[in-house]
Design a protein around this nucleic acid. Structure first.
Lengths: 212, 212
DNA sequence: CGTATTTTGGACCGCTCGGTCCACACATCC
DNA sequence: GGATGTGTGGACCGAGCGGTCCAAAATACG
């Protein structure tokens, strides 16, 4: 059991071993719903009851299929991370330049700033880092992995921008990536703190200036 | 009661009206202890029990003196804000230049990055904004006030820096202040996320570059 | 059909949460 | 020393928390 917990996916139908009653829910959809709820509300503020409602399954199914609140949360983080990596990689390929990719990424949060409150939720990884990465080493690990992936994506963009001559080549790409991670965390904070779109756009303008 | 709650201090000995048993605790010290606990742990993750222990008073005293968890928390935020304003104003006066003041302020978090986990807690206002400013309009108001004060302090420093020729005069001081608030939020995030001192110093280096 | 295997609904659990209440302790004022 | 007013300790509260358990339901296989 503990081994399963650690090595997951101890999820439903581990490898669809035919026998038995079939799952009555779409595990992927359910996980997605949980992720969005955690994303909006944070870990502590989200109750199992709310999760059940939004995931559309019963308590025993949740425990059977996902193993408990924390395990579910970790799955959500990892799902978020995977999604993010894919999306970013795809966007970078299609982007006109590394610098524009970065700017667009940041400006996404400006758009978020005009959404209703529950959608102004920033980046799940950042939220988790501030809420309780330090309190739980297990969660912390997964957040760290997420940060690493994000950094890789950003670094790729920075390197490309440097080659393209739109980002200062004298600054270390790794350091700039860390700076951008920091910036994303900051924007997450100010958006949640109530900054409006215009303000976020201005901030992004200054952030980008540091790349010159 | 509600009026008292809103207009506080409905605290102990509202204006020390002589009669009755005297307070057995130092209200200021108690409030300080509560503030530090909230600061380290966040609102949701801090229980009344923990607060009682660290404040050194009994349940009824807490409710009598501070009115409940949320009211106590709001008091802590305001206390934090007031302290902060004073400290920043004092430091700015003594600083060699506006720019150096800003840099030192940011580097403070680098120093925090080598503290044990429970002391790597960033800025209470930022933490509160990310945790649940959106969920509670009452708290949100107080956070907003805090942000405003912080912005004022930063703007004063920026303006001074511009006069001194160490900060670009073409950039709007208000925008730069917002940028710095964002940066503080970001640093808070990465520190809580586990960044070490060196990394934070590098990030601060880039942040400062945007002021050129 | 019966049996094995899995999922599911919901009753149930102990615990901790924030919060209330009141008898008593401790002060001042006359 | 009352009378009066305030602070304090601790019992007590209902609610909601995350989590467990098991009988019933639903499939596959022989």
């Amino acid at each position: 059991m503990q081994i399963l917990l650690t090595f997951g996916p101890f999820g439903p139908n581990m490898q669809n071993m035919s026998n038995g009653r079939p799952l009555q829910y779409d595990a992927d959809k359910a996980l997605d719903a949980a992720m969005h709820l955690f994303w909006s509300q944070g870990y502590e503020a989200t109750s199992m009851q709310e999760l059940l409602e939004v995931m559309g399954l019963s308590k025993s199914s949740l425990y059977q299929g996902f193993g408990g609140k924390k395990e579910l949360f970790i799955r959500c983080i990892n799902r978020y991370r995977t999604n993010m990596s894919e999306v970013l990689a795809g966007l970078l390929v299609k982007a006109n330049s590394g610098r524009i990719f970065i700017e667009k990424l940041l400006l996404n949060f400006a758009i978020e700033a005009r959404q209703p409150e529950h959608l102004r939720r920033g980046c799940l990884l950042m939220n988790t880092a501030t809420e309780f990465a330090q309190k739980d080493s297990q969660v912390a690990e997964h957040v760290t992995v997420g940060f690493k992936r994000l950094r890789e994506a950003l670094q790729a963009a920075v390197l490309r921008g440097q080659l393209e001559g739109e980002i200062s080549p004298v600054q270390d790409a790794g350091v700039l990536s860390d700076y951008l991670i920091c910036s994303i965390g900051g924007i997450t904070t100010v958006v949640k703190g109530g900054a409006d779109e215009q303000r976020v756009r201005e901030i992004v303008g200054v952030i980008m200036k540091a790349l010159d």
